[in-house]
């Protein structure tokens, strides 16, 4: 390949090539606009997919890049969702500041819990994230005076975006809004991944023993990415609140934490777009399958997951990039 032989002489251009927007990415964002014209009846679903994709990216940053295995990330999604709902109930329904508020609140909790997270690894890490998720869920359940408990948070009133674009029944505003925020989230995540900090995260994932031996304060790196990831998950949760004008305990559930990891592994970890692809497949499959049979649709998800992972252990994008690499 020509790029490799060039790179041997110029490290800068090789590294630039690593972070360049690919045709695949550009094509993806063009395709993301298609639902407006071809599937206008599915815009609400498209909006939910965009929100889930943003959540998946937040998990990819910790799981795929930094190697922090989490089964409790819904806590940040849910905290963001409740924060965005509660701020409107306090009388402030402006959506953009609502997103910022929700992201900041989730980031704060993310930062506080990161002190525990960086102290454990492997199975212990899964247990800790799981435990934190359960704690948050039951806290929200118990504080029903604030959260509405099992009935969910009602009376969420979100003002039009920029005072102009109202959230309509068909989801035009919802999908536009979610898609733009997802795009900004991807731009931010790309920036992080292709920075020196992103490189250090990959270092942590690749070899934790070596990191201190090159003088790395890697625990600070992990705390930082965990906080950033929590903020992004919080923003995703806030989007769900603002586009559906309701919050339920389900946003904090273990099911949501587990589903997002399934989507990420399905699409391929450590690639940002893996989570998006996974979210699309999972959500579309759920929509179609639950329409056919509302009770047993997880059967098909299970089958899909096994089929994909047996053929492509690194997920769909991992498998595709391996195929592309073999051809050239």
């Amino acid at each position: 390949m020509t790029t490799v032989s060039q790179a041997a002489t110029d490290p800068h251009s090789w590294l630039r090539g690593q972070s360049r927007w690919s045709y695949f990415e550009i094509a993806f964002w063009v395709i993301a606009l298609l639902p407006f014209y071809f599937f206008p009846t599915y815009l609400t679903l498209a909006s939910q997919i965009a929100i889930t994709a943003l959540f998946a990216i937040s998990v990819d940053l910790v799981l795929g890049y930094a190697g922090i295995i989490t089964l409790g990330h819904a806590m940040f999604f849910g905290l963001g969702a409740y924060a965005a709902g509660l701020i409107t109930k306090a009388g402030w329904g402006e959506p953009l500041t609502g997103l910022v508020f929700a992201g900041a609140f989730a980031a704060l909790i993310g930062f506080l819990t990161s002190f525990i997270i960086v102290r454990v690894r492997h199975l212990a890490l899964i247990m800790i994230t799981l435990g934190l998720g359960f704690l948050t869920l039951e806290l929200a359940n118990a504080m029903s005076w604030l959260t509405g408990g099992a009935d969910g948070l009602r009376g969420v009133d979100v003002w039009p975006i920029f005072g102009w674009f109202e959230f309509d029944l068909w989801g035009y505003t919802a999908y536009s809004y979610s898609l733009i925020v997802l795009f900004l989230g991807v731009v931010a995540a790309r920036r992080i991944v292709h920075s020196a900090f992103g490189l250090s995260l990959r270092g942590v994932r690749e070899n934790l023993t070596r990191m201190p031996a090159i003088g790395s304060p890697y625990r600070f790196h992990l705390q930082k990415i965990y906080t950033i990831s929590a903020a992004l998950a919080g923003v995703a949760g806030a989007l769900l609140t603002q586009t559906t004008e309701t919050v339920s305990l389900e946003t904090l559930s273990f099911q949501r934490s587990a589903d997002i990891v399934v989507m990420l592994i399905l699409g391929g970890t450590g690639r940002l777009y893996g989570g998006i692809i996974g979210a699309i497949i999972f959500m579309v499959a759920r929509d179609q399958l639950s329409g056919m049979n509302p009770q047993y649709w997880y059967f098909w998800i299970g089958l899909l997951l096994m089929a994909v992972i047996l053929v492509m252990p690194n997920g769909i994008l991992g498998g595709l990039s391996r195929l592309a690499g073999r051809r050239s």
């Binding site: 590294l15 920036r191 292709h194 920075s195 020196a196 900090f197 990959r202 070899n207 090159i214």
Partner: peptide
Amino acid sequence: LFPNLTPLEAVTLAVCEREDLAGQFWRPLT
């Protein structure tokens, strides 16, 4: 070593850690 990093990336990482640049997430590596 870092199996899936290239030598260029791995050594750049070590230099960045030494110079306290490895925490910068807003500047591109390039």
